[in-house]
């Protein structure tokens, strides 16, 4: 009998706190699988954000640090500069990376820090109860845009990946999604590439993952996946950006 599917070594045997249909569980598992496959569990250091993934360090079975809201890339910079022999990554949501942490994101990218960034874009603040994110789509309803996001008031969805792709020191930027098994497969391949880049000292790599939040989108898990495919990727096109 052949074993086809098992829990990655880098993932603890603990049920996560995520809502049904949430994308975080998928991506955190993908990270664990990639860490196992690249055989870097003993030298990887993860930096968890503030947001729904705040206790990701309870799920991963390797060294981790927390970071204040938005500061993950500053913390990761401090870690990596002191321990270049380790593989350091941040795992951040859209509020963390593209609103309160915009300066840290842009400047870590601009310095070309040899880091890997997993950027979860679900177009909403989950942990605090469904407020507008910088990546919230136009007309999308949230608790702070109850009539829908309006360009003349809240501006447009912020495409931070396209922004940092302009910076000469940035090595690799790609946007992926989780709406189907095939898409998840591509997401994993991309995440693996972003880690591989760091192992080869090739500089700043960022993977943006379009991820479902059925709870605050007011949808079923299936509807949420379809919404990514039918609506979200029109605003945030998939593929290699840099």
């Amino acid at each position: 009998m052949k074993l086809l599917f098992k829990r990655p070594r880098s993932l603890r045997e603990i049920p996560t706190h995520y809502c049904p249909g949430c994308g975080h569980g998928i991506v955190q598992r993908l990270v664990a699988e990639v860490v196992d496959e690249l055989d870097i569990r003993e030298r990887v250091i993860g930096v968890a954000p503030v947001g729904c993934a705040v206790i990701a360090y309870d799920y991963w079975d390797f060294d981790c640090s927390e970071a204040a809201h938005g500061r993950a890339l500053a913390v990761a910079t401090g870690i990596k500069r002191m321990r270049p022999e380790n593989i350091v990554f941040t795992y951040q949501g859209d509020g963390d990376l593209a609103a309160i942490g915009t300066a840290e994101t842009i400047h870590a990218a601009n310095r070309g820090e040899n880091l890997t960034v997993i950027f979860i874009n679900n177009a909403v603040y989950g942990m605090t109860g469904g407020q507008m994110a910088p990546t919230t789509l136009l007309n999308q309803k949230t608790t702070t845009t109850p009539y829908g996001r309006r360009a003349d008031r809240e501006g447009y969805p912020l495409k931070i990946s396209e922004l940092i792709a302009q910076l000469p020191a940035v090595r690799y930027v790609e946007r992926v999604a989780l709406y189907s098994p095939q898409a998840v497969f591509i997401a994993k391949k991309t995440i693996k590439q972003a880690f591989q880049n760091q192992i080869e000292n090739r500089g700043f790599s960022l993977v943006e993952v379009l991820s479902p939040c059925p709870t605050y989108w007011g949808m079923s898990p299936k509807e949420a996946m379809d919404w990514i495919r039918d609506v979200m990727i029109k605003e945030f096109p998939l593929g290699r950006i840099r």
């Binding site: 930096v47 640090s65 970071a67 204040a68 500061r71 500053a74 913390v75 990761a76 910079t77 401090g78 870690i79 990596k80 500069r81 002191m82 300066a103 840290e104 400047h107």
Partner: peptide, 11 residues
């Protein structure tokens, strides 16, 4: 903000 958090990471 970034400086103190870099110190957090290094420490």
């Amino acid at each position: 903000l970034s400086a103190i958090n870099m110190v957090f990471g290094a420490s």
